[in-house]
Amino acid sequence: MSKPKIGVVVGSTRATRFADKPVEWFVSLAKARGDVEVEVIDLRDYPLPFFDEAVSPAWGPSQSQVARKFQEKVASLDGFVFTAAEYNHGPTAVLKNALDYAYNEWNKKPAGFIGYGGVGGARAVEQLRMHAVELQMAPTKTAVHIVWGDFLAIREGKKIEEFEHINQAGKALLDETVWWAKALKAAREADAAAAATKAA
Rank of each mutant, 00 (worst) to 15 (best):
G79V: 06
A84C: 15
A192Q: 13
S28H: 12
T140D: 03
D191G: 11
V8A: 05
K158A: 13
G117M: 03
Y46R: 00
M137Y: 02
N104C: 11
M130C: 15
N104W: 14
K158M: 10
K109E: 10
A93D: 06
A187F: 11
G11T: 00
R44E: 01
V23K: 10
S64C: 05
R123A: 10
D175I: 04
L128F: 05
K109N: 08
A122Q: 11
A58N: 11
S28V: 09
R123W: 11
L184V: 02
I160M: 10
E189Q: 13
A196F: 10
Q127L: 14
L43I: 06
K198C: 09
T92R: 06
S12I: 10
D175K: 02
A192H: 04
V133C: 05
T16I: 12
P61Y: 02
M1L: 13
A172L: 15
V38T: 12
V27N: 04
R14L: 07
R129S: 01
A111R: 01
W59V: 13
D150H: 14
Q168E: 14
K159R: 14
G7D: 00
A93W: 01
R17E: 03
E37N: 09
K5T: 14
K141A: 12
H165C: 09
S76P: 09
A199S: 13
E37M: 05
A190T: 12
K109G: 07
G7F: 05
T197G: 07
E164M: 12
P139Y: 05
W180R: 00
T177Q: 00
F70G: 05
R17N: 03
V10K: 07
E189L: 08
K182V: 15
A190F: 08
L99M: 11
P91T: 05
R44F: 07
A58L: 12
E86Y: 07
Q127S: 11
D52T: 13
R33W: 00
K31E: 13
W148K: 15
G34S: 03
F51V: 08
D45Y: 00
T13Q: 05
K69W: 01
A122G: 11
T16C: 10
S56A: 12
V119L: 13
F70W: 11
A75T: 01
D150M: 12
Y103Q: 02
K182Q: 07
L152F: 13
I6P: 04
D52N: 15
A153Y: 04
N167E: 10
A193N: 10
N104S: 14
V10H: 01
E39A: 10
E105L: 08
T83W: 06
A143M: 09
K96H: 07
K141C: 03
A195L: 14
A190H: 10
D191M: 14
